[in-house]
Simulated assay, not measured.
Amino acid sequence: MTADIWLPFAADQIEGLPEGLAYRFWDGGADFPADPADCAFYTVPYLKGMEVALRPLPAMKSVRVVQTLSAGVDHVTPGLGALPAGVRLCNAKGVHDASTAELALALILASLRGFPGFAEGQRREEWRSGFYPALADKSVLIVGYGSIGAAIEDRLAPFECARVTRVARSARTTERGEVHAFTELPALLPQADVVVISTPLTEETKGLAGADFLGRMKDGALFVNVGRGGVADTDALLAELESGRIKAALDVTEPEPLPAGHPLWHAPGVLISPHVGGSTSAFLPRAKRLLADQLTRFAAGEEPRNVVLTSG
Rank of each mutant, 00 (worst) to 15 (best):
I272V: 12
W127Y: 14
V226K: 08
S62Q: 14
A10M: 05
L264E: 01
V44W: 10
V276C: 11
A282R: 15
A209T: 01
P190Q: 12
N225Q: 03
R124E: 00
T77R: 14
A282C: 07
P259M: 12
A71Y: 13
V196T: 08
T310C: 11
A299M: 10
L201I: 01
L69I: 04
K93A: 13
G312H: 10
S139P: 01
P84D: 14
A239N: 02
G86W: 10
P58S: 09
G117Y: 09
V63A: 05
S62V: 04
R64M: 07
D219F: 01
A22I: 10
R286K: 15
M50T: 13
D35W: 06
Y23C: 04
F9Y: 12
R245P: 03
A136D: 11
G220C: 09
L264N: 06
R128G: 00
D38F: 08
I142F: 10
R55E: 03
T2R: 15
A22G: 09
V143E: 03
A232L: 08
Q122F: 07
Y42L: 06
H266P: 02
V44K: 12
G210P: 02
D27G: 11
V140Y: 04
W26D: 03
E242Y: 06
P259V: 03
G79Q: 02
P200E: 11
C161R: 13
V167P: 04
V164P: 00
T174R: 11
Y23W: 03
G227T: 08
D97M: 10
S273F: 11
A192K: 09
E242Q: 14
R163Y: 07
G215T: 03
G49L: 01
L17W: 05
V87N: 05
G207A: 12
L290S: 09
I5T: 02
V179S: 06
S279P: 04
L103V: 02
I5H: 06
A92V: 01
D27N: 15
L290K: 11
A232W: 03
I14T: 01
P158C: 05
I14A: 00
P133D: 13
T68K: 12
V63M: 04
E102C: 05
D74V: 05
P116W: 06
